[in-house]
C-alpha cells in the first residue's frame, strides 16, 4: 500500500501568502493582503468546501494553486513535490492533473470556438489519444455532464449559463485530472440550475478514481450537500476548519456561526444559541495591529481580543478554530 492510498495528502497548501499592490494617488502604494498564511490539505478524491465572503481571498487561492498567479510566500505541495515556484515550462505537464472551473461560465469560453473545439483544445494535453479518439472523448464528456452531442457544434453565445457551466466542467474533466478547483461554479446561475450542477457534482463524486474537488462558495448551504470537510476563510485567513458535521452542527468560531445564521438553513437552528445579531457583514475594515481581525464586528469581543493575535488551534480531532473563546461560546 503506497502512501497516497493510506490517506496521504494529494495537495497540501502551507502558509500561502499573496499581496496585491494598489496604485494610489501620488506615490503612496496601498497593499492588500489577499491571502495571509493559508494552509489546507486535500486528500485523493475528497471534496473540500472553502467558504468566505467576496474579497476573502478564496478565488486568489485557486489562481495561485493553478499557477495563474504567483504566491508571495508559502508552499504548494502536490504529491510530495513543491510546485509553487516552478517555471511555466515545468508547470505545464501538471496542467493535466490540476484543473479549474471558473465562476462565470460565459466569459470562460473563447467566443470564437465551438464547444467541441474548446474540449479538443483541452484534450491536446492528452497525447496518447489520436484525433478520432479525441472526438469520441468529446462525445463521452458531454454525455457525462448530461449535455448531448448536439451541443458540440454550438458557440458559447448560443448556450445558457447552466449549459455552459456543464461544458466547463466537461472541459475540466477532459484530461482526467486529480484535482478540480471549482471557483463559485453556481454563483452566476439560477436557483433551479444550481441544483442541477450540484447533482452533477454529486454524481461525479461517486465515480471510482474521480478527481478531488475544492468547492469555493460564499453560500454555506451548498456545501451541506457536496463537501466532506469545510474551511471558513475571511480576510485572507482561515478562521475555522472541520468536517461537514462539525461545521454545521458544532461551529465554534463566531464568524462561522454568523455565516450559518445568514443562510436560511442555519437560521432556525442557531438563532437561539448565539448572542450575535447574525449579520455576516462584508466590510474591509482593518483591525488594530496584533489583535483579532474580526474585533470590530464580533459581538463576543473582549479586551484580550484587541491585544492578542489569534492562531488556529485544534479543539476537537479534525476541527481547528482561530478564536480563544471558542470553548466558552457554546
Amino acid at each position: 500500500m503506497n502512501a497516497e492510498a493510506a490517506g496521504e495528502a494529494l495537495l497540501r497548501i502551507e502558509g500561502a501568502t499573496k499581496r496585491f499592490s494598489l496604485r494610489q494617488r501620488g506615490w503612496r502604494r496601498q497593499q492588500v493582503v489577499a491571502l495571509d498564511g493559508v494552509s489546507m490539505t486535500l486528500r485523493r478524491g475528497e471534496t473540500v468546501g472553502l467558504v468566505g465572503e467576496s474579497g476573502s481571498g478564496k478565488s486568489t487561492l485557486g489562481r495561485c494553486v493553478l499557477n495563474l498567479l504567483r504566491l508571495d510566500g508559502g508552499r504548494i505541495i502536490y504529491r510530495g513535490r513543491e510546485i509553487q515556484a516552478l517555471p511555466e515550462r515545468e508547470w505545464r505537464p501538471l496542467r493535466r492533473r490540476l484543473q479549474m472551473v471558473f465562476q462565470n461560465p460565459v466569459s470562460s469560453f473563447n467566443p470564437m470556438m465551438t464547444i467541441e473545439e474548446a474540449l479538443l483544445d483541452a484534450l491536446r494535453q492528452v497525447p496518447e489519444l489520436d484525433h478520432a479518439q479525441r472526438r469520441q472523448r468529446v462525445g463521452d464528456l458531454l454525455e457525462q455532464v448530461q449535455l448531448g452531442a448536439r451541443f458540440a457544434v454550438l458557440y458559447p453565445y448560443e448556450m445558457s449559463g447552466g449549459q455552459l457551466q456543464r461544458a466547463a466542467i466537461a472541459r475540466a474533466l477532459a484530461p482526467q485530472p486529480d484535482f478540480i478547483f471549482l471557483d463559485e461554479p453556481t454563483a452566476n446561475l439560477d436557483m433551479s440550475i444550481r441544483g442541477q450542477i450540484i447533482n452533477l457534482l454529486l454524481d461525479l463524486q461517486q465515480r471510482e478514481g474521480g478527481p478531488g474537488f475544492v468547492f469555493v462558495t460564499h453560500d454555506l448551504r451548498v456545501l451541506r450537500y457536496v463537501a466532506e470537510r469545510i474551511y471558513v476563510i475571511t480576510q485572507g485567513h482561515i478562521v475555522e476548519s472541520g468536517s461537514r458535521d462539525q461545521i454545521f452542527h458544532a461551529p465554534r468560531h463566531p464568524w462561522t456561526r454568523a455565516l450559518l445564521e445568514a443562510s436560511s438553513i442555519g437560521r432556525r437552528d442557531r438563532r437561539q444559541a448565539s448572542g450575535s445579531d447574525g449579520e455576516a457583514d462584508i466590510s474591509l475594515a482593518t483591525s488594530p495591529e496584533g489583535g483579532c481581525r474580526l474585533l470590530a464586528r464580533c459581538p463576543h469581543a473582549r479586551e484580550r481580543c484587541a491585544r492578542e493575535t489569534q492562531v488556529l488551534r485544534e479543539i476537537e480531532p479534525g476541527q481547528q478554530v482561530r478564536c480563544w473563546r471558542a470553548e466558552e461560546l457554546d
Partner: peptide
Amino acid sequence: EADFVQAARVAGNSP
C-alpha cells in the same frame, strides 16, 4: 486578463 484566456492556460496551452 480575460477568463477564457486564463481558462486556455489551465487547459494546458503554451504561452
